[in-house]
Nucleic acid binder design. Sequence first.
RNA 1: GUGGCUAUAGUGUAAUGGCAGCACAAGAGACUGUGGCUCUCUCAGAGCGGGUUCAAAUCCCGUUAGCCACCCCA
Length: 418
Amino acid sequence: MAIHSIKGMRDILPEEARLWQFVERTAREVFESSGYEEIRTPILEETALFRKSIGEGTDIVSKEMYTFTDKGGRSLTLRPEGTAPIVRSYIENRMAADDVVKLYYVGPMFRSERPQKGRSRQFHQIGMEVIGSSSPYFDAGAIFLMTNLFKKLALSDFKIKICSLGCAKDKEKLAKELGAYLTPEKNRLCPDCKTRLKKNVLRTLDCKVESCRSVLRNSPKAKDFLCGSCGGHYKKVKDLLAELKIDFTEDANMVRGLDYYTNTVFEVTHPGLGAQDAIAAGGRYDNLVEDFGGKKTGAFGFALGTERLLMALSSEKKAGPQKKGLDLYVATTGDKMYTEAFKAVIPLRENGIFCEVNFQGRSLKSQMRQANKKEARFVAIFGDEELKRGEVALRDMKTSEQRNVKLSDLAKEVREGL
RNA sequence: GUGGCUAUAGUGUAAUGGCAGCACAAGAGACUGUGGCUCUCUCAGAGCGGGUUCAAAUCCCGUUAGCCACCCCA
């Protein structure tokens, strides 16, 4: 019985991992240059953390979480997103209560959905959270940071949509009015929207079914219910984005699938993906810290889907990082010199020379072929004759020139040749 | 969770229900100690379980996985 990786989870093999490293390295550089620091939280959390933050009525909580009971009878869940664990950690570790805390994270998330293009059960996110302020400068600043990362990655064809949901009171008012508007029209709504009407009215706003869209054309929208300060906040964010020359469109029907969002929400899509075309999304969550027992403080964050970002990048056909060729391939002509070769590469590697040794007893021809395939710049041949004189043959694979060098000078010779 | 499509060497692909081929990759060799080109040889395959049939890669059922869409979302 063969064992396979499980449904919706896959291996990232070396060739692809190089691209992942490139994207993650670039993200770290961009975040750290703006004063963000990495945080690593556990992959398992108490189930209640997600139930309370994401929301009981959401799909993520109601049907997509990997939840199980451990040996101590506790209900644990594999994290489906990154924000809630960070808020938990922020409170638990009493991070800088009177200052703004800027964090970023990189890692796997888990949702038990039916896999399709751009959606797997273990997927990866790169995200940031800035906790401790409700200033619109952080909304715009975070979005700028994201576009800056896209620029560094040479990603260009993305679209940013933004909207504001308002504060908790505004959201409540909107939900009430929207419910009142839709109830008489109930029979014209799709079955999903009928359920949403009871469970989570706001979600009817982004329904794709044509009949629902026409019903909703003149429905109450989030922007109609923004209170004075929320309206001002939203306007300031838009002004700042314009100031930063970031292209965006307003989408009055955008709502997000996580209950904790307030005020600014945004989503970034890319045409190179399939139906799951959001490569990044996020927004403000000014109540979450307080809801978990911290002091009342504003916060903003977003996450990028690493797989989707990679798909977007490859759809734009940008050349990725190339595999680095070997500096030196050490060929051996018999097991007598394995130990000699084994020891010889130690100082080379300490000198930063990227090298490999053959211990497989292949013919010299086969080893040369392999050296060529590995794009080795030099080959050092450890042969009986040469070793007797304390030398090895050093071949330059580019020029095909070959000469004997002292074994003790090998590192120096290779360094000079590179 | 619902629906549609798919499943053949490591990869990509052929074959009216009748001998499973091809290309690339991998390994060995064509100079007794030397790479790229070329040539020769070798290795290696029907996801799994049933059924129909003289005969199944091929038809049918189930299952598993993948893909795509719905839904949802990063």
